[in-house]
Structures are given as structure tokens and as C-alpha cells.
Design a protein around this nucleic acid. Structure first.
Length: 319
DNA sequence: ACCTGTCAAGTCTGG
DNA sequence: CCAGACTTGACAGGT
């Protein structure tokens, strides 16, 4: 089984290369005239795209085929102050060529809309804002010309005092979405509310691929063992062009155990690998650590001493 | 060059 | 009913 590794949004190795530059609402408001404000936003957006391109080159040079693009690529894209700003036209060409490069090098691109994207909120304005945010992500992926294997990873949402009703509301709202959304949305278990088993049930019912977050499962699991239903989680990816994806991170410390540590404990990964090995299926691992790409390299360096792990290149292994 | 409080967005808890 | 926690990278204003 082949396992590919990737990291989230930014590099700690490539200097001066943030793809998430922004401007605060307050400061943008100080600029006189809509035209000048939009021009400022456009120049930030283009800078972010330039840096994303540099990250792509870096990834390709190191055989890293898995990458999560930042949600902050286009500054204030869904903020009311930028409502009349046609950002897509401004960055259309850059987006397309970025996507071409990704396709040529067989990159697996994903995005993870922020935690206030809540499809199941009982507040209509929140649910609507969430759809606007998903639309924004869709336009980026479509603009890059990526096929439906480029996924949008989201959580189920809040519990709002009634988990059962909130799950139902997710189902209702999800069903209202067009197929453009549905072919990209995948669901992830979270660290507080919806466990892996609950998310799996939802994914099976709605035929949505499920991303298992090992760290979240460790925080929030109702005492069940993910090994018992890992095969079912992987099965939600049947018919998809790409293999299942998991998220991997380690707890920061005993007190802040939900937070991401700087690096990933090799034992944390190996424990999971022991459960996945019998299934003998390829899967992708998204590393979520403060040290970003360096954490990926650090983990792989540690795996070098494991006898049954063979290195294909800098970014993938064979087990 | 470096430091610190603040930032568009939501939800949950505890007082 | 409201303040604070949660979480994270970057801004912005200051030294």
C-alpha cells in the first residue's frame, strides 16, 4: 500500500512566502474610493497567488503531491465591503495556470473552509453565509480547472443543544445544495461534538466521503475503537478518483490537548498504521502541525528506521 | 528588526 | 444575558 503525505497551506522552509496575506476591514475602510480599495485587494490576491505558485514549485521539488490551499487566498472575498469586487476576473489567468501546474504534476489539492462555515446552523444568516463561503471555495477550484477529486473538507457543525435535530438540519441543508457542491464536499469528525462514528453514519446516509482526523478522534470518541470501522470509513471513498484521506496531528500538551503540536509523534502515526495495514489500501495523510512542511519531513525521517516502511521518494512511502 | 494586542465571520460554557 | 475561551496567522502600530 502506498501512502502519500502532504501539509497545510504554508511552508516554514520557503522564506517570505505567505499565501494568506490580507488587510483588515478597518484599514481597507480608510482607503478612499471603491476603485482604490478593490485595487488594493487585487494586488494582495495576486501576491498570494504568486506565493502559492512558489509553494507548488517547492512541493514538486520535494515530491509532495498533497497540499491544502489556504482559504485566505483572496482577501475579504466574502466580506460585504468587497461585494462589488469581481475578484475572479482579476485573478482568472493566474488561477488557471496554477491549476494547470497542479494537474501536470498530479497534485491532490484540497481546501478546508474555516470553522464558521456551519451548514447546520439554525440561524439562517449563518447557514447562508456558509454557502457563500463554500461558493467562494468552489470558484477557486473551478478557476484552477480542478476536477471533482479536489475536495472541500468541512465539519458537520454545532450541536445547538440538540445533536439529533442538528444532524437532521445538516441533512436537510446539504440536500438543497447543487451537485457542484456535493461532488466536492467531504466530512470530517471534530474534536468536541461529532465523533468519527457519527460522521461515518452521516456520510453513509448521504454518500459523502469521510476524512478521518486521528487527533480529533483521540479527543472525542465515546470510547470506541476506530479500527472497528476503519474499513467502512475507507469504503465511503468507493467510486472516487483518489484514495481516502486522513488528517494527522499530535496533541500540544496535557492541558491544551486539542491544539496541534509543532510536530507529529511518529508513534501516533504508527498506532494508526497498525490498524490500517490489514486493509491494504492506499491512503493520503494530511499533516496538520505548526511546523508545516518541516513537520512532514521530520516525521518521515523518523519512519526511516521502521523495517516494514519503504521510501518511494521524499513525500510517499510503501508499506 | 522585533514585540504585542487585535482581527469579518460562530458556538459553547460558566457566571 | 454577557464575557471569555477556543484557535491561528497575519496585521498594524509601536518601540
Amino acid at each position: 500500500m502506498r501512502i502519500y503525505f502532504g501539509y497545510v497551506a504554508m511552508s516554514v522552509i520557503v522564506p517570505e512566502c505567505t499565501p494568506s496575506k490580507t488587510i483588515t476591514f478597518q484599514n481597507l475602510s480608510k482607503i478612499d474610493g471603491e476603485k482604490a480599495r478593490f485595487s488594493r485587494l487585487s494586488s494582495i490576491a495576486r501576491e498570494n497567488l504568486r506565493n502559492t505558485r512558489r509553494l507548488f514549485f517547492h512541493n514538486q521539488a520535494h515530491d509532495i503531491k498533497l497540499f491544502r490551499i489556504t482559504s485566505k487566498l483572496i482577501p475579504l472575498a466574502t466580506h460585504p465591503i468587497a461585494e462589488n469586487w469581481d475578484w475572479f476576473v482579476e485573478v482568472k489567468d493566474e488561477l488557471k495556470s496554477l491549476g494547470d501546474y497542479a494537474r501536470e504534476n498530479a497534485f491532490r489539492i484540497s481546501a478546508h473552509p474555516d470553522h464558521f462555515t456551519l451548514l447546520n446552523s439554525p440561524r439562517e444568516e449563518v447557514a447562508e453565509a456558509s454557502i457563500r463561503d463554500l461558493e467562494y471555495h468552489l470558484r477557486i477550484m473551478d478557476g484552477m480547472g480542478l476536477d471533482s477529486s479536489a475536495k472541500l473538507v468541512i465539519h458537520v457543525g454545532g450541536s445547538y443543544g440538540n445533536k439529533e435535530a442538528s444532524l437532521k438540519r445538516f441533512i436537510q441543508n446539504y440536500k438543497l445544495l447543487s451537485s457542484e457542491f456535493k461532488q466536492r464536499i467531504v466530512l470530517e469528525n471534530d474534536d468536541k461534538i461529532y465523533t468519527a462514528r457519527e460522521v461515518l453514519g452521516l456520510c453513509q446516509e448521504l454518500k459523502i466521503p469521510m476524512v478521518l482526523d486521528i487527533h480529533h478522534h483521540w479527543c472525542n470518541n465515546h470510547n470506541d475503537d476506530v479500527g472497528d470501522y476503519l474499513a467502512d470509513i475507507f469504503a465511503t471513498w468507493e467510486g472516487e478518483a483518489r484514495p481516502p484521506k486522513i488528517h494527522l496531528s499530535s496533541p500540544k500538551d496535557a492541558k491544551r490537548f486539542r491544539s496541534h503540536a509543532d510536530n507529529v509523534e511518529a508513534s501516533f502515526f504508527l498506532e494508526f498504521l497498525a490498524k490500517a495495514r490489514p486493509l491494504n489500501r492506499d491512503f493520503d495523510v494530511m499533516i496538520e502541525a505548526k511546523n508545516k512542511d518541516q513537520a512532514l519531513f521530520n516525521l518521515l525521517a523518523e519512519l526511516k528506521s521502521i523495517p516494514y516502511i519503504h521510501f518511494i521518494d521524499e513525500g510517499s512511502i510503501e508499506v
